[in-house]
């Protein structure tokens, strides 16, 4: 029981990560791949934020009379990672727009047949 209380959060987060990862590698549509990539990354962010939590703590902004704060460092890292994520998404989506214009499709199996991509 203790094991479950200690780790349930991480287990669900792992499940979410793997769902996102599965969407990335199994989706045939490129937009869906990008959605999967975002779900994958957002779930990794949850892993970081979960480890920063202190039971009974509050947000790391100084308030009179509070002594227990959650850990600010994971928050900082994830702020950066979110920005990196949106940057990748923007570039990925513009590639998709160009691919659609060049090939007329965004379904992976269709353009692999059209151009014998290596």
């Amino acid at each position: 029981m203790n094991l479950i209380l200690d780790y349930y959060n991480y287990w669900i987060v792992v499940f979410l990560m793997m769902t996102g990862f599965y969407i990335v590698i199994s989706a045939n549509n490129l937009v869906k791949k990008i959605v999967g990539l975002n779900i994958f990354q957002t779930s990794v962010f949850m892993l970081y934020i979960s480890m920063g939590k202190v039971t009974g703590g509050t947000a790391p902004i100084v308030v009179e009379g509070v002594t227990q704060y959650s850990n600010p460092l994971p928050h900082v890292l994830i702020l950066t990672a979110i920005v990196v994520g949106v940057a990748t998404t923007a570039v990925g989506l513009s590639l998709i727009v160009r691919i659609k214009r060049a090939y007329g499709t965004v379904e992976e199996n269709e353009f692999e047949n059209k151009d014998d991509a290596i």
Partner: peptide
């Protein structure tokens, strides 16, 4: 989980 800054960013970006 007390990460208010992160939540703010995730909501506006994600």
């Amino acid at each position: 989980l007390d990460a208010v800054d992160v939540a703010f960013t995730e909501a506006s970006v994600g």
